[in-house]
């Protein structure tokens, strides 16, 4: 699946999107796998209360299933308007 990062999450991880091969069943499983990769991921995902997640472009929560997902995005709380 494609994993996307925006705003300071993108800056901390150092890339806007990447292809991830994963057997993760939920967003939280994916976060756990990403955190284990490298320090920059662990840093970006250190405080989940500061993060929001969208699965296939719909806002959801960290318990959400990603078994059928094509795209998962992580970003800070939005500041539109």
């Amino acid at each position: 699946m494609d994993v996307l990062y925006f705003a300071w999450v993108r800056e901390r991880i150092g890339l806007p999107r990447e292809r991830v091969e994963t057997d993760a069943r939920t967003v939280m499983d994916l976060v756990t796998q990403l955190r284990a990769r490298e320090e920059r991921y662990a840093m970006a995902f250190s405080d989940l209360t500061a993060l929001r997640v969208a699965v296939d472009q719909q806002l959801t929560d960290f318990d959400a299933s990603i078994e059928q997902a094509r795209e998962v995005a992580f970003f800070p709380p939005m500041t539109g308007g």
Partner: peptide, 12 residues
């Protein structure tokens, strides 16, 4: 406006 502020994916 309330929804645009915190539910539309923009970052300033």
């Amino acid at each position: 406006m309330d929804y645009l502020k915190s539910r539309a994916p923009f970052w300033k």
